[in-house]
Amino acid sequence: MTESARPKAFWPRQMIPPTPESFKELARDGGERLAAVSLAQIPAIPAGAKIHDNGCGSGAATTAIMASLPPGVAASISITGTDISRGAVDSYRARAGSSSWPAEGLVMDADSLSFPDETFTHSFGNAMIFVGPRNNGVDAVKEMHRTLKPGGTLLLNCFGHNNVLEPIRKASRATRSDGILPEWDSFEQWTDPSLIAGIVEAGGFEKEAIKVVQCHMFVNVGNYERATTLVWSMRGMPSGGWTEEDEEKWDEAVEIVRRELQQTDGFRMLDDGTAEVKYPVIVVTATK
C-alpha cells in the first residue's frame, strides 16, 4: 500500500491532541513528587556527592535533589543527567541552565552507560525502571551497580498501583461494542514490591543491602474536568486506533473515568475545582 493510499488515523473531535505539552500537562508535577518521596528514604546527600540522574527526562529528580539541599551542599555537588531521548536531554540542559544546576545532560542508553567503573556516589532512576530498559531493567541496574563507587547509593522507584488504569478499563468496556481495552494497559507486574527488589539483586547488589519501602504521594491533577479529558485522550485509545464509536460515546466514557477515579483510595476533590489523586509508591534503595 502506498503512503497516499494508507487510511488516515481517526481522531475524535473532542480529543485533546497528544503533544509533548499535553503529556506534560497530564503528568503535572508527579515526577518531582515521586522523586521527593523517594529521596526521603535515603540519608541526606552529603557535600561533594557525584550523582547520576539516570533516565533524567526533563529533570524531575534533579529538581527534587536540588530542592532538598542547603545552599552550601548544593554548590559542592555535581549531577550528570542521562536519557536515551535527545529531546529529553535538550530539555534537561535548558532547565539546568535556567536553574543554575551544577549539572550536565548527556544522551545515553541506560543499558550501556559509557562512564568508567566507580564514577558516582549516588545513582538514581526516577520513574525509569518500568518504562524503557530492556531485560526488565536488569541490564540497566547492572550498569548502575558498575558505575557506583563502593559504598554508593542506588535509588529506584515505581508506582505500586496506577489509579487511572481501572477507570480507563471500565470506560472501555462500557462504551465499546467489542469491549476492547486501551492500548495503554500496563503496570500490573510492578505492584509487587518483590519484583523491583529482585531486579536490583539480579543487577549485582547483595540482598542484605537492599531495602524496600512502600509509601505514597498526592498529585494535584488540576481542573478535574480537564484532567479526566486528558486521561482519556492520552490513555484511552484502543490498540486498533480510535473509532467513530469512540467519538459518539466520548462524553459517556469520560464521565465513567471521572466517576470511577473519584472512588479510588485517597481521592480528594478540592473547593477550587481541582483534585488530588493518591499514588502508592514503591522505593528500593541499595548500597554497593
Rank of each mutant, 00 (worst) to 15 (best):
S4M: 06
S4F: 07
A5D: 10
A5I: 05
R6K: 09
R6T: 13
R6S: 09
P7A: 01
P7R: 05
K8A: 12
R13V: 08
E21S: 04
S22Y: 06
F23N: 02
D29S: 11
G30F: 09
Q41N: 10
P43Y: 12
A44S: 15
A49N: 10
H52W: 05
H52P: 00
C56S: 14
I65V: 15
I65G: 00
A67Y: 05
P71F: 08
S85A: 06
S85D: 11
S85H: 04
R86T: 13
G87Q: 08
A88I: 00
S91I: 00
Y92K: 00
W101M: 00
W101E: 00
A103W: 00
E104A: 01
E104M: 01
E104N: 01
L106G: 00
D109S: 03
A110D: 01
S114G: 06
S114M: 04
F115Y: 12
H122G: 10
G125Y: 05
A127G: 02
A127D: 02
R134M: 03
G137S: 08
A140L: 12
E143C: 10
E143V: 08
R146P: 10
R146C: 12
P150V: 08
P150Y: 08
G151H: 04
L154P: 11
L155Q: 12
C158T: 15
H161A: 13
N162I: 15
N163V: 14
P167R: 04
R169Q: 13
S172E: 03
R176N: 09
S177R: 08
S177Q: 10
S177C: 09
F187E: 02
Q189W: 06
Q189P: 06
Q189T: 04
D192V: 04
P193W: 08
S194C: 11
L195R: 14
A197M: 01
G198M: 05
E201A: 13
E201D: 14
K207R: 15
E208G: 15
V212E: 05
V213D: 11
V213W: 02
Q214M: 14
Q214A: 14
C215G: 07
C215I: 12
C215A: 05
H216I: 08
F218C: 08
V219T: 07
N223E: 11
Y224L: 13
E225T: 10
E225R: 11
R226N: 04
A227N: 03
T229D: 06
T229C: 04
S233V: 07
S233Q: 02
S233M: 05
M234N: 09
R235W: 14
R235F: 15
M237Q: 13
G240W: 12
G240I: 08
G241W: 03
W242G: 04
E245K: 07
D246Q: 09
E247P: 09
K249F: 14
W250N: 01
W250G: 00
D251C: 02
E252P: 01
A253W: 09
E255Q: 04
R258K: 14
R259S: 10
E260R: 05
Q262E: 12
Q263N: 07
T264D: 00
R268A: 05
D271F: 11
A275S: 11
A275P: 07
A275M: 02
V277S: 02
Y279P: 02
V283Y: 00
A286W: 14
T287E: 10
